[in-house]
Amino acid sequence: MDPFLVLLHSVSSSLSSSELTELKFLCLGRVGKRKLERVQSGLDLFSMLLEQNDLEPGHTELLRELLASLRRHDLLRRVDDFEAGA
């Protein structure tokens, strides 16, 4: 399986429902409101961002910004580990 997708799945499974709600709010300018209403998990949101090329294995800035906004430094370390091994 693609290591970047494994990372996104790992991050998604670590998010609380309130954190997902916050991420959806933060992505309002990037993803349409109707699409965001269908998001049920972090993976749903990340999939939309992947489709729009806002997220890519070599383009993790948005993911970092979102996780920093949540103050999830543990998840930021996972992104660091991914990039160190990528």
Rank of each mutant, 00 (worst) to 15 (best):
L26W: 06
S13F: 04
L76V: 11
L75S: 01
Q40H: 14
S17K: 14
L49F: 07
L67S: 02
L5F: 14
E22G: 05
E65I: 11
A84P: 05
E65P: 03
E19P: 01
R71M: 10
M1A: 06
F4E: 00
L76P: 01
L55Q: 07
L26K: 13
L55D: 06
M1R: 10
L28M: 14
S17Q: 15
S10R: 08
L23P: 02
F25L: 15
K24V: 04
Q40T: 14
S69K: 14
F25R: 15
F46S: 02
S17E: 15
A86M: 15
E83M: 08
S18H: 12
R78P: 03
S13P: 05
D74M: 00
K35A: 10
E83W: 04
R34E: 15
V39G: 02
L5M: 14
S14F: 03
R38G: 13
E19R: 00
S69V: 08
E19N: 04
S13R: 15
L49D: 03
F46G: 02
A84N: 13
L26V: 05
K33S: 11
S12C: 05
L28N: 15
M1E: 12
A68M: 14
E51F: 07
L36D: 03
R64D: 03
P57T: 10
V6C: 13
E83Y: 06
L23E: 01
S47L: 15
Q40W: 07
L66F: 08
F25P: 05
S12A: 09
L62I: 11
L7E: 03
S18G: 11
H9C: 11
G85D: 14
L75Q: 02
F82K: 00
V11I: 14
K35R: 12
N53W: 05
S18R: 13
D2E: 06
E37D: 13
V79L: 10
L36H: 03
K35D: 13
R71A: 10
S69T: 12
N53C: 11
V31H: 04
V79H: 01
A68T: 14
L36A: 07
R30K: 15
H9F: 05
L5T: 14
M48L: 14
E19H: 00
E65G: 11
L26T: 06
S47Q: 15
L8T: 01
H9Y: 08
S12D: 05
H9A: 14
D54S: 10
D54P: 05
T21W: 06
G85S: 12
A86V: 09
F46R: 01
L20D: 02
S41L: 04
K33A: 12
L49H: 01
M1I: 10
R72V: 02
G32A: 12
E19S: 01
L63Q: 02
G58F: 07
S16Y: 03
F4S: 02
S69C: 11
S14E: 14
R71K: 14
S14M: 08
S10W: 07
K24D: 03
S12N: 04
L55M: 14
G58E: 11
E37Y: 06
L76R: 04
L76H: 03
Q40N: 12
A68E: 15
R77L: 09
L70S: 03
S14L: 06
V11F: 05
L63G: 02
R38Y: 12
L75V: 01
R71Q: 13
K35T: 06
F4I: 03
R71H: 15
L50A: 15
V31K: 01
E56L: 13
L45E: 02
S16N: 09
G29Y: 05
E51Y: 07
E65K: 12
D44A: 07
L28R: 14
R72W: 00
R38E: 13
F4H: 02
K24N: 03
F46N: 01
R38K: 12
D54L: 14
R30C: 07
R64Q: 06
D54E: 13
S16D: 07
F82S: 02
R77M: 07
S10V: 08
E19T: 01
A86F: 08
C27L: 11
L50P: 02
L49W: 00
L43R: 06
S10E: 15
L43Q: 10
V79K: 00
V11M: 07
L15P: 01
V31T: 05
K24R: 06
L8H: 02
F4M: 03
L55C: 07
G58N: 15
D44M: 06
S69M: 11
L67Q: 02
S41E: 07
S18F: 09
G32N: 08
P57R: 10
G58Q: 14
A68F: 11
A86P: 11
L45A: 02
A84V: 13
L8C: 04
D74A: 00
V6S: 15
E83C: 08
V39F: 04
A84R: 14
S10D: 14
S18M: 14
A68H: 12
Q40D: 15
R34A: 14
L7K: 02
T60A: 05
S14T: 05
R64C: 06
R78H: 10
L67D: 03
D74H: 00
S14P: 03
L26M: 14
F4Y: 09
E56Y: 12
L63K: 00
L62V: 12
K35I: 02
E51C: 08
L70G: 00
P3K: 14
E22F: 07
L63V: 04
T21P: 03
C27D: 03
S10T: 12
S18A: 12
E65R: 10
D2G: 05
M1L: 08
V11E: 00
A68W: 15
P3Y: 06
L75D: 01
L43C: 07
A68R: 15
V39N: 03
A84H: 13
K35N: 12
G85N: 12
G42D: 03
S12K: 01
L43N: 09
V79Q: 00
E56I: 10
T21A: 13
G32H: 11
G32F: 03
G42T: 06
R78V: 09
G29S: 12
G42C: 08
H59K: 14
K24G: 03
G58L: 07
L28A: 15
K33L: 10
S69G: 14
D81Q: 09
R77Q: 11
S41N: 11
R38M: 12
H59F: 09
L15K: 01
L7Y: 00
N53L: 06
S47P: 03
L70R: 02
E56W: 09
R72M: 01
R38H: 13
M1H: 04
R71N: 14
P57F: 13
F82T: 02
S16K: 07
Q52E: 11
E22I: 07
E83H: 07
L45Y: 01
V79C: 06
T21Y: 08
K33N: 09
V39W: 02
G58M: 09
F82Y: 14
F25C: 14
S47F: 11
P57C: 12
L20C: 04
E37K: 10
S17C: 11
E22T: 12
K24H: 04
L26N: 09
A68S: 15
T21I: 07
A86K: 08
E61D: 11
V79D: 00
C27H: 01
F4T: 02
G42S: 07
Q52D: 07
M1S: 09
A68N: 14
D74E: 03
F82W: 11
H9P: 00
L23I: 07
H59A: 09
L63I: 07
L49I: 04
L70D: 00
S17Y: 09
P3G: 13
L7M: 13
G29A: 11
